[in-house]
């Protein structure tokens, strides 16, 4: 059953990811990316990472992609006119991609116990969110505060960037 859910979500995810590259209209690309992230959250659920899956839907498929769509509609982007592809860039990119795929396949094959199914979990009734919450507020309290400061800095930076005219 878990395997079937894994296949459904991963095939859908890769399909929508491919649509992001293929679609000419930026709005269609952004909506495909939303679906891709939702399917990725489904994959997180198959890995028993429920909290991360919900965060993925809320933050990525919700907030981040709404920001993307908002910017696309704000700038009123039209469909991209096809220009001639630069052959040198195309082959250079293909070379990089082939090298990456080779390195990845080699790494996955050499990994020990890569084709074994996941060990059974014995959580003792403690939920995923409780575990992460305790870890976050006890062990990683200081990084949590720093992340808050990072969000503040990002907010100030965005206001600064969008309020004055760049030349």
């Amino acid at each position: 059953m878990q395997l079937a859910i894994f296949w459904i979500f991963s095939v859908l995810m890769l399909l929508f990811a491919g649509l992001v590259v293929v679609m000419r209209n930026p709005v269609a690309s952004a909506l495909s990316l939303v679906m891709c992230f939702i399917c990725l959250a489904g994959l997180y659920f198959t890995l028993d990472a429920f909290f991360i899956g919900i965060i993925q839907i809320l933050v990525y498929a919700g907030a981040v992609m709404v920001l993307f769509l908002f910017i696309i509609m704000l700038l009123n982007l039209k469909e991209e006119v096809a220009r001639r592809l630069k052959l040198s860039a195309f082959f250079g990119g293909g070379l990089v991609l082939c090298g990456f795929v080779y390195a990845m396949v080699k790494a996955v094959i050499n990994l020990p116990e890569v084709w074994q199914t996941a060990p059974k979990l014995e959580t003792g009734g403690i939920s995923d969110v409780a575990r992460i919450g305790f870890k976050l507020f006890e062990t990683y309290n200081m990084p949590l505060q720093i992340v808050g400061v990072i969000l503040l800095v990002a907010t100030i930076g965005v206001v600064f960037l969008s309020s004055r005219q760049l030349r």
Binding site: M1, Q2, L3, A4, F6, S10, M13, L14, A17, G18, V20, V21, L40, L43, T46, L47, G93, V96, L97, F100, V101, M104, V108, L111, E113, V114, W115, Q116, T117, A118
Partner: peptide, 23 residues
């Protein structure tokens, strides 16, 4: 009973990375 292995997930994640690189 069937469930996916680590290799399945790593390959899917590698493919997603490759599609992002293509984009």
């Amino acid at each position: 009973e069937a469930s996916a292995t680590l290799g399945h997930y790593l390959i899917v994640s590698g493919l997603l990375f490759g599609i992002g690189l293509m984009a």
